[in-house]
Design a protein around this nucleic acid. Structure first.
Length: 478
RNA sequence: GCCAGGGUAGCUCAAUGGUGGAGCACAGCAUUCAUAACGCUGCGGUUGUGGGUCCGAUCCCCACCCCUGGUACCA
């Protein structure tokens, strides 16, 4: 494999993204940056963005008295600002209202239709506007939707277009079983296999609102949001408008998404692609959710933290570090600002930052000159076994642990060799000790590049030689 | 209810059928090149409960309790 195409979930624009969404974007960003080092910048494409159609967006726009387009674009801009604050290095930030996107969604609709997988049917049921979906009897409590008990359930009969999802049931089950890497982690695949047994056709059009992608040769209905949203992964790499780009990067190597979106990505999306005769993505990587101080992060609990809230106080790299070091990507994890501070002081200030300071100072006062070494290349360094093994299992916390053992080892080495005493004695050994230390720091910097891009760059700049000077602390203690 | 994963030190998490490990936090020692930082030492646990198999169980088996996730809205 000599290219890497990674996508994140595109976030729905009913509200600006919070720290939990950022967790996923940061993980994706680390994978993208890691692969850029391995494969070269031009061979990686990283897509993220926003999902902007649908009834909820339409209603929210009405409530704030502006047009849907104006509304969703406004929220999307704030999402982008949040992502930028933690240095998400996307190659494209797609919005589903972008001009090229509707064409792609329509093209997929056409292909699926031509393949005989779309039919007009009647759907009748109890509709919840909060869910934008029909409710099963099992969802109801006292005649109301259990998720939106303050909304009225409406009995609706509508004529909808249906997708023959059930036709792909056997194909999907077989594909999941034959491709153990298709859904990661494994237990999520088991969930999907359970669900797949009961796949029924689903309505993929809506007639009770108009804020959606128009359906080809149809004026009364618009596309169901998931049908158009999923196709963003094709639009993002130029499905219709840039054949060369598309052929280079499709199929996607990793779709990372929250566990709530799994079904659509693991079962609906592959069925759509199969129907349209397009290759399937390689891996669906499912991330867990973050809890804050043991509680769900939610608007109604009023405990929403946005990336910028913490970035302002601790810096982007500290937020990135904490979120990836002390969580498990594929499980739910609990985070708190208190623990972020602890990690900041213990690992970034006392650990990494202090090590950089002491080595820089030693080099400066002893007038050490770093030789232009025929050093190892970044892609070589980053292929060190423990580190790359962690990446292949998506254990980003372990990859960071590995880097920190290197930091501890170098601290210990310096304590043992006592270069400050060698300096006083004018010992010729000093040069060797410092040379090793600087080598190690350069190595550490490369390993940090995917995780702490700003910090890694500063370290590389400071230690590139030939003269190495003392600088302000990278992470002042808090 | 059903399905899946888990319960190990105050916290985060490793490990193994043969006298329980790491990091953080805390305490002491030592030290000054460094951000009152680094290093060393120590404190800290009947490995959820009860039973079983075994010479021996934290690990395997059974039952139970608790937590998390999934069970056609949702990062």
């Amino acid at each position: 494999m000599n290219k890497f195409y990674i996508t994140t979930a595109i976030d729905y624009v009913n509200d600006t993204i919070h720290i939990g969404h950022a967790f996923q974007k940061i993980a994706a960003d680390v994978l993208a940056r890691y692969n850029r080092i391995l494969l070269g910048k031009d061979n990686v494409f990283f897509l993220t963005g926003t999902d902007e159609y649908g009834q909820k967006a339409e209603k929210a726009a009405k409530a704030s008295g502006i047009s849907p387009l104006e509304f969703v674009r406004k929220i999307a801009a704030t999402d982008k600002e949040q992502q930028d604050s933690v240095n998400i290095s996307y190659d494209r930030f797609i919005e589903t209202t972008d001009e090229d996107h509707a064409k792609v969604a329509q093209e997929i609709w056409k292909r699926v239709d031509e393949n005989g997988d779309i039919y007009l049917g009647e759907y009748s049921g109890l509709y919840c506007e909060g869910c934008e979906a029909y409710c099963d009897d099992s969802d109801l409590k006292n005649g109301k939707c259990s998720f939106h008990p303050n909304l009225e359930i409406k009995k609706i009969t509508e004529e909808n277009y249906f997708f023959k999802w059930s036709k792909y049931k056997d194909f999907l089950i077989k594909h999941i079983k034959n491709n153990p890497d298709f859904i990661f982690p494994q237990h999520r695949a088991n969930e999907m296999l359970e669900f797949a047994k009961n796949i029924k056709d689903i309505p993929i059009s809506r007639s009770n609102f108009t804020w959606g992608v128009p359906i080809p040769n149809e004026t009364k209905q618009v596309m169901y949001v998931w049908f158009d949203a999923l196709t963003n992964y094709l639009t993002g790499v130029g499905f219709l408008e840039n054949k060369k780009l598309f052929e280079k990067f499709w199929p996607a190597d990793v779709h990372i998404l929250g566990k709530d979106n799994l079904r659509w990505h693991a079962l609906l999306w592959p069925a759509m692609l199969k129907s349209a005769n397009i290759k399937l993505p390689k891996t669906i990587l499912v991330n867990g959710f973050l809890n804050l101080n043991g509680r769900k992060i939610s608007k109604s609990l009023g405990n929403i933290i946005r990336p910028t809230d913490w970035v302002k106080k601790y810096g982007a790299d500290a937020v990135r570090y904490y979120l990836l070091r002390y969580t498990n990507l594929t499980n739910d994890s609990d985070i708190s600002e208190e623990k972020l501070k602890q990690a900041y002081n213990a690992d970034l200030a006392n650990g990494l930052g202090n090590l950089i300071s002491r080595v820089a100072k030693l080099c400066e006062t002893s007038n050490y000159r770093q030789m232009e070494g025929a050093g190892k290349t970044s892609s070589h360094l980053i292929s060190v076994e423990e580190y790359s093994e962690s990446f292949s299992q998506y254990r980003l916390n372990d990859a960071l642990s590995f880097v920190w053992t290197k930091i501890t080892e170098l601290d210990r080495y310096i304590n043992n060799e006592k270069p400050w005493e060698l300096a006083k004695q004018n010992s010729p050994k000093l040069k060797t000790i410092l040379s090793h230390a600087v080598d190690q720091i350069q190595e550490i910097a490369v390993l940090l590049e995917p995780f702490l891009p700003e910090t890694a760059e500063k370290i590389e700049e400071q230690f590139k030689g030939p003269k190495i000077t003392s600088q302000n602390p990278l992470f002042p203690r808090i």
